[in-house]
Amino acid sequence: MLNVAICEDNLELIDVYRLIFKNYMKDHPEHDMRIVISTGNPTEFENYIKYRSDNNDMFYLIDIEFADSQTKGIDLAEEIRKNDATAKIVFITTHEELAYLTFKRKIEPLDYIRKEDGIKSMNESLYKDLDLTFQRLHELKSQRKKMFHYSLGSRDYTIDVSNINYLETSSSSHKVFLHSLTEITEFRGNLNSIEEEFTNLYRAHKSILVNLDNIHSIDSLNKMIYFNDGSSCEVSRRKLPGLKRKMAQ
């Protein structure tokens, strides 16, 4: 069951959104969803977030600015995120109000819907967002992807392990560098505990953990590992035979 919650101070727009959701339900009878709250009052909405009793997946549609209230959309979203990391949040906004990077950073919203783009575009966006939501929920339930977690500052990060090429430590600091398909990131930690947790990560070097699933080839002569995306890292001579054995399995 997917719960939809809407907070928008323009009551006519609330009706528009409700209609869009109703139509989506009609078009997709296979999906189990309902609108649990639609309000123009942020305080009422906040109360719902705080005291909701069920454990259903959530889809929030939140306006960014409320004319009569000090509370802003981002505050509501932060409140949601405190307890629910997987809730899908879509912001409704006008162009000027959008602090894109900050929102992305603090909330990780699913999408932004711009009021000035018109009802038709809104309709399309919401359909797309709902499709994506169901798709993601399905993925989450069916395969239970192995996720890698780390935290930095006040945030927790998750990365799909299948995207990781390798992790390495620097000798000078207690930082771990993570090399994935799309990013390089660093955090505090050590390789030993990571190695224990993930079986498909192999210690190819004193300071390197490689993801066996992403290895393309091994250059024994130069003691290098090449990954599917073309990046590479070192492997120590001592670990080379073990790595080859693992790869042959």
């Binding site: 600091s173 207690h174 930082k175 799309t182 990131t185 660093e186």
Partner: peptide
Amino acid sequence: VNKKPNFFLNTKFENDEFTVILTIE
């Protein structure tokens, strides 16, 4: 960044967008 123990760098390239985040704990 390496010189500071509480500086952390995140570099990401995705969807034709390049993002660098410097986090200072």
